[in-house]
């Protein structure tokens, strides 16, 4: 019969309409973005940042300016200059630090290759996406200071990945300590 489908459809929409007032949780599924936001997914990634340990971004920066990421970066958006002097890293080895570390995130294509190739777990992908900026060139060219973010932040956005990294690093530290002790023992026995 003509019109029965219309009545059925109108009953459905009436249910939806009334439901938004009676049971807003079930029917109103919209997240009102700037005030409410959904947590980012573990595997979300946007642009890279540099990880530092401890509280001081200068001292704790994991990067050793090995420039592997700079060479591997497909769009070549990373620029690194080595510092003159060396500092000890987490296993106690003397390493260079970058004096300049710039990423042009307007060029970056979020491929995560820099993260894959870094031997020191110094670079990770961020989930931050509100990057709009009135300065088209300077605002999107992030320097070392703006790139550095703490390990706690990293653990917060990528908990699983950070856990694995931490385990590996603890293993490295343990091996290094064992090696050192072995060397000391060898030195003392000589």
């Amino acid at each position: 019969m003509i019109g029965s489908g219309i009545v059925k459809g109108m009953a459905q929409t009436a249910k939806n309409f009334a439901g938004t007032y009676i049971a807003p949780r079930k029917y109103l599924v919209t997240v009102e973005y700037p005030e409410e936001r959904l947590p980012a997914k573990e595997n979300a990634r946007n642009f890279p940042f540099l990880v530092f340990d401890g509280d001081d971004p200068e001292a704790g920066l994991r990067c050793v300016a090995c420039r592997i990421c700079e060479k591997e970066c497909p769009p070549q958006c990373i620029y690194i200059e080595k510092d003159k002097e060396k500092k000890p890293d987490y296993v106690g080895k003397m390493q260079f630090q970058p004096s300049v570390f710039d990423i042009d995130i307007s060029v970056c294509m979020s491929c995560q290759i820099c993260v894959e190739v870094c031997p020191f777990d110094a670079i990770r992908m961020d989930t931050e996406f509100e990057l709009s900026n009135p300065d088209r060139f300077g605002g999107l060219l992030l320097d070392k200071r703006r790139l550095a973010k703490s390990n706690e932040y990293c653990a917060e956005i990528h908990p699983e990945e950070t856990e694995q990294t931490e385990a590996r690093r603890a293993e490295d530290v343990r091996k290094a300590v064992a090696k050192k002790q072995a060397r000391q023992q060898a030195a003392s026995s000589d």
Binding site: N16, F17, G19, L28, T30
Partner: peptide, 10 residues
């Protein structure tokens, strides 16, 4: 507003 409510929006 009413269309939004019908479509489960605000």
């Amino acid at each position: 507003k009413a269309l939004g409510r019908i479509q489960n929006r605000f």
